[in-house]
Simulated assay, not measured.
Amino acid sequence: MTKTLLMFMAITLCIACKSDPKKKEPIASTSIQPDYIAYQSHISKAEKHILDSNYVAAFKQYDTAFTLVDKPLAKHCFTAMQVSATVDSLDHFKKYSLKGMRRGLLPQYFKEDSLLNGYLKQKELYPFIDEHFEPNHKIYEESTNTFLIDTLKQLTLLDQKWKVHYWDSLARVDPENKPKYDSLYNIIVSDIVDNKLIPLIKEYGYPAERSYGIKAVNYAGKNGGSQRRSYQNSNATVILMHYYSLPQECKYNDLLLNEVMKGNLEPTSYATLIDFQAQWGKRKYCKVRHFNEWHATKDSTQFEAINKRRKTLGLRPFQERLQKNKRGQKACKEIKEGNFKHIKLFYWCG
C-alpha cells in the first residue's frame, strides 16, 4: 500500500515540481535591506495601542512600520486604513489604500467593511479607489509567482487528501490502529515537506504572501461574513503544522528563521511552527522552547524567557495574545447584536 501511495504522489507532483520556465534573474542587492523584524515590532506596538483604544499612537506606529519595507502585509494595510479613518487622516487613508491594493486588497473588501465603507462614503472616496485600483492591482499581480501558486496548490491538495483520509477519518473510526494511520500519513507529509516544499523554499524563498499573493479566508465558516475574514496565505505553513504535529527532527529551523529575516515568512508563523515542535517534537533530537504563539506552556518559570524570545522576532509578550482573544470574543458578540464597526486585528472576530 505504501509503495502505491508513493507512486501516486510522484505522478501527481511531477508536473508541479518542474523547473520554473519564467524564473527571473535575482535582483542585485542594495546597500539598505528591509528590516522585517523592526517592521513587525512596530506592527506589534500598533496592535497593542489598538487593544488600549489609543488610536493616535497606533496610527503613528503603522506610519513608521510602512517606511521600513516595500511590501507591507495586506492585513496590516487594511487595519492601518481603519485606524487612519478613525483618527480622520485623509491623506494617510489614501496612502494606505494604495499600499493595500498593491498587496492584493480589492475594492469589494473595503465596501464590505462597515468602518471603511462609511469613511469612503463620507469623504466621497470611491472615485479615488476606482481610479487607482487597476494600476495598483497590476503591480500586485506582477509581484506574484504563478509557478509557486500552482505548485503550492498541488502540494496542499495532496496533503489535505491524505490528512482527511487517515487522520480525520480512519484514525477516528478505527482508533486501535491509529498508530498505523499516523505512520502512513507521516510518510506522505514527510515526502511533501522533505522532497517538495523544502527544495522549493531553498530555491524561491518561503512561499507566502509576499511572493504568492493573498487569499480572502473566512475563518468562521462559509457564513461568517466579512467581519470574520482574513487576508493571508498560509498554505505552506499549514502543511508544516501538519508535519510538526507528528514527532519530527527540527532540521529546517535555521532555514525557516532565515526566511523570517528575508521577509518571506511571518514571525508569527515561525513562532507557531516552533510551538508545534516544542509540543510534539522528538525531544532527543529537537530541543526547542515555546513561543506561546499557538501551543503554550503553562510553566510560569519560563514566561520571562518566552517573551524575550518573542521580542527577537518583533513580537509583543504572549499575554497580549490573550487580550486579542478576549477582544475578539467581545467583537463576536457585538457583531451578533448588529455592531459591525470594529478595527480588525485579524484575531477571531476582532
Rank of each mutant, 00 (worst) to 15 (best):
T272Y: 05
A220R: 06
K45S: 12
S89A: 02
S211Q: 07
K48E: 08
I306M: 04
V217Y: 04
Q279S: 11
T297M: 03
N117G: 07
Q329L: 13
F346G: 00
T2W: 11
L68R: 00
I187C: 11
L345P: 01
L120Q: 07
F8E: 14
A58G: 01
K308R: 12
C349L: 03
D150Q: 13
I274W: 02
C77P: 04
I274T: 06
D113A: 10
S234D: 09
T79G: 03
S183F: 12
K24E: 11
F340N: 14
M7N: 11
N253W: 14
G100W: 01
R283G: 09
I201N: 01
L313D: 00
Y212S: 07
K333G: 10
V193Y: 05
S245T: 09
H290K: 01
N325H: 15
K308P: 04
T297E: 04
I214W: 02
A171Y: 07
K99H: 10
P175E: 06
G338F: 12
A65N: 00
D88T: 01
N264Q: 02
K71R: 07
D191I: 09
Q232D: 12
A216G: 10
A305G: 04
Y231A: 08
E142S: 15
K45R: 15
V173C: 11
N258S: 13
I37P: 00
Y62K: 00
K48Q: 06
E176V: 12
A331C: 13
K48S: 03
S190V: 10
Y244F: 15
M7S: 10
C349N: 01
T12G: 14
T146G: 12
D159K: 08
T2E: 13
G328H: 09
C17V: 08
Q33H: 06
S41Y: 04
E134Q: 09
T237C: 09
S19D: 08
H49A: 02
E141G: 10
V288F: 03
S97A: 15
N145L: 15
T312E: 12
Q323Y: 14
L273V: 04
I27R: 11
L345S: 03
D159V: 04
N177C: 08
G118Y: 13
Y347E: 04
I187H: 07
P135Y: 06
Q61I: 01
Y231K: 05
A305H: 09
C14E: 13
P34C: 08
H165P: 09
N117W: 10
I201G: 01
L315M: 07
G104N: 08
Q279L: 08
C349W: 01
L246Y: 13
I274Y: 04
Y204Q: 07
H92E: 04
F110S: 01
S31C: 14
E141R: 14
F276K: 07
F59G: 00
E134S: 06
Q277R: 09
I37R: 00
S169P: 13
R289Q: 12
I129R: 06
K99S: 09
I15T: 09
E141C: 13
K111T: 03
L115F: 10
A216F: 12
D88F: 05
L322H: 12
I198S: 02
G314A: 02
Q33K: 14
N218D: 11
